[in-house]
Computed example of a mutant assay.
Amino acid sequence: MTSDFTLRPYRASDEEAAITLWLTSWQEAYPAIDFAARLPWWRERWRSELVPNAAIIVAQQEHRLLGFVTIDQQGYLDQLVVAPDRWGSELATMLLDEAKRLSPVSITLLVNTDNARAIRFYERNGFVHRGEDVNPVSGRPVKKMEWKAA
């Protein structure tokens, strides 16, 4: 299947589109949470933690950012964000495959225990459960998941 988007490294000029996409995606996934109220926190975290410390790959269609993945040098995947109108498409898998290319030995992540869609996605892509935890920011229960190269 030919994709209608391209994957490329993040550029500073992508910041606003990436932050907006984060807001849109998470608000769709968790409508009861006011993610707009978290924007100042997220913008600061994006700028001070993720951009300087992680490889960020974006999916772009013409001038629209459709998704992104962040993976740090330790193989921690902090964010895999896809536009809600692309949920269920090949986009998330292609972004995850790019993270695996950048971290070819292993990847770890935390996923909200009530995010069944994401948990199924990661399981289909070779991740296994490695325990339970609590997200230090949100206080929500999370599953620790890990992928290891064969």
Rank of each mutant, 00 (worst) to 15 (best):
S3M: 11
D4Y: 09
D4H: 12
D4S: 09
F5K: 01
F5W: 13
Y10F: 14
Y10E: 03
Y10P: 03
R11I: 08
S13H: 11
D14Q: 07
E15W: 06
A18F: 07
I19M: 14
T20F: 13
L23G: 05
T24P: 03
W26C: 00
W26T: 06
Q27R: 02
E28R: 08
I33S: 10
D34R: 05
F35S: 03
A36T: 14
A37M: 07
P40A: 02
P40D: 03
W41H: 13
W42A: 00
W42S: 00
R43N: 10
R43L: 11
E44C: 04
R45M: 12
R45H: 15
R45D: 10
R47S: 12
L50T: 07
P52A: 05
N53A: 15
A54D: 09
A54G: 04
A54W: 05
A55V: 12
I56G: 05
I57G: 00
V58E: 03
V58R: 01
V58T: 10
A59P: 00
A59I: 03
Q60G: 09
Q61Y: 07
Q61T: 06
H63R: 14
L65Y: 09
G67W: 04
V69N: 04
T70A: 06
D72T: 07
D72G: 05
Q73G: 14
Q74I: 11
D78S: 10
D78R: 04
Q79L: 14
Q79F: 15
Q79H: 14
Q79S: 15
L80Y: 08
V82N: 02
P84S: 04
P84H: 04
R86E: 15
G88C: 04
G88W: 10
S89Y: 05
S89V: 02
S89G: 00
S89K: 02
S89C: 01
E90H: 13
E90F: 04
L91N: 00
T93F: 12
M94G: 11
M94F: 10
L95S: 03
L95T: 01
L95M: 07
L96M: 05
L96P: 00
D97S: 13
A99S: 02
R101I: 10
S103Q: 10
V105A: 14
V105W: 12
V105R: 14
S106E: 15
I107F: 06
T108C: 09
V111M: 02
V111F: 06
N112W: 12
N112Y: 15
T113I: 08
T113Y: 06
N115L: 04
R117P: 09
A118L: 06
A118W: 14
R120Q: 13
F121I: 00
E123W: 08
F127C: 01
H129P: 03
R130I: 06
G131A: 06
G131S: 07
N135Q: 11
N135F: 08
G139H: 08
G139T: 08
G139Y: 09
G139R: 09
R140M: 12
V142Y: 11
V142L: 05
K143N: 13
K143L: 13
K143M: 08
K144C: 12
M145K: 01
M145I: 00
K148P: 01
A150C: 11
